[in-house]
Design a protein around this nucleic acid. Structure first.
Lengths: 199, 199
DNA sequence: TTGAATAACAGACAAAAGTCTGTTATACAC
DNA sequence: GTGTATAACAGACTTTTGTCTGTTATTCAA
C-alpha cells in the first residue's frame, strides 16, 4: 500500500519546498507540507522535517506555529529609501521615506538608502539616480565614501581627513572639493553599497 | 482601571510593530502583539489588528496562524549569485551558486546575480567586482545592457542590433566591440540592476 | 532469515493561535 | 444629560497546528 521512493529523494524535495517558502513568503505548517506532497499522514511530513532539522539543514522553534527556519538567518533587513535629506536630520526623513529596500547585512547597524543627485561622483561609478546604501555612523576613515550633511543638504563624497578639518572630495574633475566648517557639517554615515536600477 | 491613550496612537505603534515583524522576520501571532504591548486581553490586540485590516493597512488570511501580511506583497525574492558562467549554461551555474541575494521585483521572472569581471563596462558605471542583477530573457532591445554567452564565457556588454547580426559593445574605449557568429552566441538576460558592495 | 534503516500511513491528543460575546471607562458632540 | 465612538479588559470557545504512539512495507546488510 505504500510505494517506495529512493532514500533522500523526497526529503530533498521537501527541503527545497520549505526553503522556498521560508525565503519568499512564510514558513509552511507541517500540514501544508503534507498537502503539498500529497502525504496521507501528517507524520510523514513531520518525519522529513524533523530529519532535516537533525541534519542541520533546517532549524525550528519548538511548539510554535510555522516554526521552521533556515539554520543561519540570511540576515536580510529592509532599510528605508530616502528621496532626499533636508534640514533637521534623518529621523524625519526616515519617517517620510519613499519605501523599503532589502539589504543583506550581518550586523544590526542602522542603515538607510539614499537616491543620489548630481554628477559629482561619476568617477567612482556613482551616477545620478543611483541608490547608495548607507550605514549610519558619525565617524569614518579617510578615503571612505560618506554621506555628509553640509548646511541643510546631504551630499555623497569621498572623505579626506586633514588636521583639525575634514574635506569632502568629489570624484569628478568638474567639481571642487568642499571644506566645510566643523559646525556646519556632520557625517551621516558610510556608503557600503551602490545600486543602479536600469529597468 | 483602564488608562486612556489618544485615539490612533497605540494603533500606529501596533502597525509599525507588525510591519517590522512581517518585513524582517515572521508575522506575529495575535498573542505576540498582545505581549509586546502588555495588553491584558488578547482582544485588545485583535481589535487593533482588525481595524488596521479594515483601514487597508494590513491584509490577513482568516483563521491562519500568523496570517497578517502587508496589503501589497513587497515582492522581494532571492536570486542566486553566480561567480561565473561557464560552458553548458545557467542550470549548472545556478545549482552551484555562491549564495542568494535579495532583489525587489514585481513580476515573477527568473533572475540571477553575476559578479562582473574586467573593465570593459566602466564607462557605464559598471566596475570589476560589481554584481549585476539579470532578468533571464533570450532577446533584448538595442541599447540594453545584457549578459551574453560568447563561446564558453559569459560577458556583460551593451547590445546593438545590426541587420542579421548582433554586436556586443563595451563601454570603454580600450576595448573593441564583439561581433559574434549567431551560432556561438546567446543572450542570457538583461541587466536590470547594478550593485557595488564597498564594505 | 533476521535485524536494522527508511518511507509511508492511521489515528489520536495537546498546545498554540484565531475568534467570539460581553463589560467597563474615557472622550466628545449634541 | 444622552448617545456615539474608541480603548481596554475578561473569559471562554473553536480551529489550527504541533506532537505523539503505533503499524505496515520495502530495501539492504549480516
Amino acid at each position: 500500500m505504500s510505494p517506495f521512493t529512493p532514500p533522500g529523494e523526497t526529503r530533498e524535495k521537501v527541503y527545497r519546498f520549505v526553503r522556498r517558502r521560508i525565503i519568499e513568503d512564510l514558513p509552511p505548517t507541517v500540514r501544508e507540507v503534507q498537502e503539498a506532497f500529497r502525504f496521507k499522514a501528517v507524520q510523514t511530513a513531520r518525519q522529513h522535517l524533523e530529519r532535516l532539522v537533525a541534519e542541520g539543514r533546517l532549524a525550528k522553534a519548538r511548539g510554535q506555529a510555522r516554526g521552521y527556519r533556515l539554520p543561519r538567518e540570511p540576515g536580510t533587513l529592509f532599510v528605508p529609501l530616502l528621496g532626499r535629506v533636508q534640514a533637521g536630520g534623518l529621523r524625519e526623513a526616515i519617517e517620510a521615506c519613499e519605501g523599503y529596500i532589502p539589504v543583506q547585512s550581518r550586523g544590526s547597524a542602522e542603515m538607510f538608502g539614499l537616491r543620489v543627485q548630481g554628477e559629482s561622483m561619476t568617477g567612482a561609478g556613482i551616477l545620478p539616480g543611483d541608490v547608495v546604501i548607507v550605514r549610519q555612523q558619525a565617524r569614518a576613515a579617510s578615503g571612505d565614501i560618506v554621506v555628509a550633511r553640509v548646511g541643510d543638504e546631504a551630499t555623497v563624497k569621498t572623505l579626506r581627513l586633514g588636521r583639525n578639518r575634514i574635506e569632502l572630495h568629489p570624484a569628478n574633475p568638474a567639481f571642487a572639493p568642499i571644506v566645510p566648517r566643523a559646525d556646519e557639517c556632520a557625517i551621516l554615515g558610510k556608503v557600503v553599497e551602490v545600486r543602479r536600477y536600469l529597468a
